[in-house]
Design a protein around this nucleic acid. Structure first.
Lengths: 211, 211
DNA sequence: GTGTACTGTTACACCAAGTGTAACCAAAGG
DNA sequence: CCTTTGGTTACACTTGGTGTAACAGTACAC
């Protein structure tokens, strides 16, 4: 990827330029209040070029979604020997505390990424799409590892459960950050959340809700 | 709902007319190949009226999604005393075999509901949206029953797991129907799928995948 | 019955996302 | 050089979706 070549360089430069320009505009004025024409004009590029790089306007916001996908996948495929998938995902969720500084920055901004997405239906849909994709990729990896026969429902269910847990814990962590308090406090609470969730997933859902 | 009144009657009549006309057109020619203008013309109604009843073109396909939502919710709220939520959902999934005749009909048709949706990105997105909505409703019901404090991640995770399982099992059942074979065979295989999935969910995810 | 308030429908003008096409031009490579 | 390749552009076009004001049938009071 990004193998030399002046042509490719220029291409990725304009791509980055477009994405940056677009997101700056979105942040300052909101997603719906910016047209693709404006973005193209601000980036000194034709509208068609914008759509050549990003199939939909929403993709301009989520153009870095592949990172998250790679991390989730790595939690399955690159885990140390002897570590179960559940534990590997637990570790991934615990490590979410590293995202706290970014969350704080986002929260300071009047229209950060989160607020942008949560305030707009089409961006929320795109978000779901991204999540679905992660689930699919993960399910494939699980099926491969388990040597599951095609059509086996288990890998998909495990994948959607894990990703669902991760996402929910992320949201919860974000809530805690928004509520304020010292980092250590937040981290402690988050750790407790993670243990509670993975405790349930490890022990089975049969006993939920507890009497 | 549908409380007398000539006005309401006419309204629901045109609504039904629009939906039926639209779906007939979709089935015969495909979703993207039919414009809303055409639908309006075929239903002898203005384009605006179509959008008055159905906020988006996709809603014309999913206008009966509320039924599924109600059934999933009922599995939680209306279950007999002493039955766990997990077991109630297992029963719901087992009962999916009642959908087999409908699946067969759909499969016979060259462009049934399933093929329509699976062949179109925007319809798939809408499908995800519907599922997300069900998860949210279910999570609220679970939180209410468990007396969970606001922000508790568990209800959401349980809900998304259960709905995910249900959806996956539905897909699996559909595959089996498509593959052919006698009803008893399909039902037996489906029952085995359900037991396998709910066995895993009941016992916990810690041991997945088995060595 | 007659007048009036209500509300679903309509015509119409309009906006913005996204596509198809052919021309264009800079880079790649012999 | 000269040719090919491929990203960019201008431009015309389609289509989903909205806003608005007028219209028409229903409900309801009197």
């Amino acid at each position: 990827m990004s193998a030399g070549g002046l042509r490719e360089l220029k291409k990725s430069r304009t791509r980055q330029l477009i994405a940056d320009t677009a997101n700056a505009l979105f942040r300052s004025r909101g997603f719906d209040e910016v047209t693709v024409d404006e973005i193209a004009a601000a980036a000194q590029v034709s509208k068609k070029t914008v759509f050549n790089h990003f199939p939909t306007k929403e993709d301009l916001v989520f153009y870095r979604a592949e990172d998250r996908e790679a991390m989730s996948l790595a939690a399955v495929t690159d885990r140390p020997a002897g570590v179960s998938i559940l534990d590997s995902f637990r570790a991934l969720c615990l490590a979410q505390t590293r995202l706290v500084p970014g969350m704080r920055r986002d929260l300071d901004h009047p229209r950060g990424f989160f607020e942008l997405v949560s305030g707009n239906p089409s961006l929320q849909r795109k978000m779901h799409e991204v999540n679905e994709r992660i689930v699919r990729v993960l399910a494939d990896a699980l099926a491969a590892e388990a040597g599951a026969e095609p059509g086996d429902p288990l890998p998909g269910i495990v994948a959607s459960t894990l990703v669902g847990a991760q996402r929910t814990l992320y949201r919860r962590l974000r809530q805690r950050v928004a509520a304020g308090g010292p980092d250590e406090e937040i981290e402690r609470a988050h750790r407790a959340d993670v243990e509670r969730v993975f405790g349930l997933l490890g022990a089975g859902l049969g006993g939920y809700p507890p009497a």
